[in-house]
């Protein structure tokens, strides 16, 4: 709002001061990746690409190449997104529109799970994956991440389907189309923005996920960027923050790109999505 009755510069000032630490952290996050700073000083004084050497140098023995890890992360995030979105889209539609037995029960269950803090289950999930042999595999982490995000996805999609006018479906039936055709050809196109928003949300959530890969697939071959970076920080006796930050920026790049493109959808799903 741009009300002329109130001055905005005092607010600007207060907000600016409060935002300062965050801004400083952001700026240094980027600047430090391409500069060196003399110890004890705050101002970087030399340009260098040295901190990005992890991209082209052979990894130390025992470490996995960053590119393998990046590929893993992409596989993890994209598979999670695909499975989650497809299951949410079908289940959301069923709960929103279709007749079926025990519907109340299913809805209540999904809603309860939606509010339920899933991370408390990690101990038993860890043991289950050990027992069924999916421990330390990417598939295991993908399935778990999908399951834990699924109630949210179903709930969101149900909300989007609820907003499609019934008459469109009725008209479709009247035009001779089957329920499935109606869903596929008439209803799904109406919720396309919702599907996109959910996909972006799940992708970001999977891309950033740390605890699940850390606990369920900690070893080298199934490593993702979050565990790679955290191991890097954890292992080092003398921290090289400039290098950590370079890896961090490399890891954050897709997030930033996605944010710039899907800014609006993200605000939408974060703002409205959690309303239950």
């Amino acid at each position: 709002m741009t009300s002329s009755n109130f001055r905005s510069w005092p607010l600007f000032l207060v907000l600016g001061v409060i935002s300062m630490p965050l801004v400083i952290m952001y700026v240094y996050l980027f600047v430090d990746t391409v500069t060196d700073t003399t110890a004890g000083s705050l101002i970087p004084d030399r340009f260098t690409l040295h901190h990005w050497r992890f991209l082209w140098e052979e990894p130390e023995t025992g470490r996995v190449s960053i590119w393998t890890v990046t590929l893993n992360t992409f596989i993890f995030a994209i598979c999670t997104t695909l499975i989650n979105v497809s299951a949410s889209v079908t289940a959301g539609y069923a709960l929103s529109r279709l007749n079926m037995p025990f519907k109340r029960f299913f809805l209540g269950g999904i809603l309860t799970l939606h509010a339920f803090p899933t991370i408390t289950l990690i101990i038993s999930i860890f043991l289950i994956l050990q027992m069924i042999g999916l421990y330390n595999t990417l598939i295991g982490v993908i399935l778990v991440k999908t399951a834990l995000e699924l109630p949210f996805g179903i709930w969101i999609m149900k909300g989007f389907f609820d907003n499609v006018p019934w008459e469109i479906e009725m008209a479709g039936l009247q035009d001779g189309a089957s329920r499935f055709t109606v869903w596929w050809k008439l209803v799904l196109p109406q919720v396309q923005p919702g599907v996109a928003a959910l996909a972006v949300f799940v992708f970001l959530s999977a891309w950033s996920e740390f605890i699940l890969p850390q606990v369920l697939a900690p070893s080298g071959s199934a490593q993702v960027l979050s565990t790679y970076l955290s191991n890097l920080i954890f292992d080092d006796i003398k921290p090289d923050f400039n290098m950590f930050k370079s890896v961090g920026v490399f890891y954050a790049l897709p997030v930033i790109v996605v944010y710039l493109i899907f800014n609006k959808q993200l605000m939408n799903i974060y703002g409205g999505g959690t309303k239950g």
Partner: peptide, 9 residues
């Protein structure tokens, strides 16, 4: 939306 590992870093 920043991955938590980076934010904490």
């Amino acid at each position: 939306i920043l991955p938590n590992v980076i934010f904490v870093l």
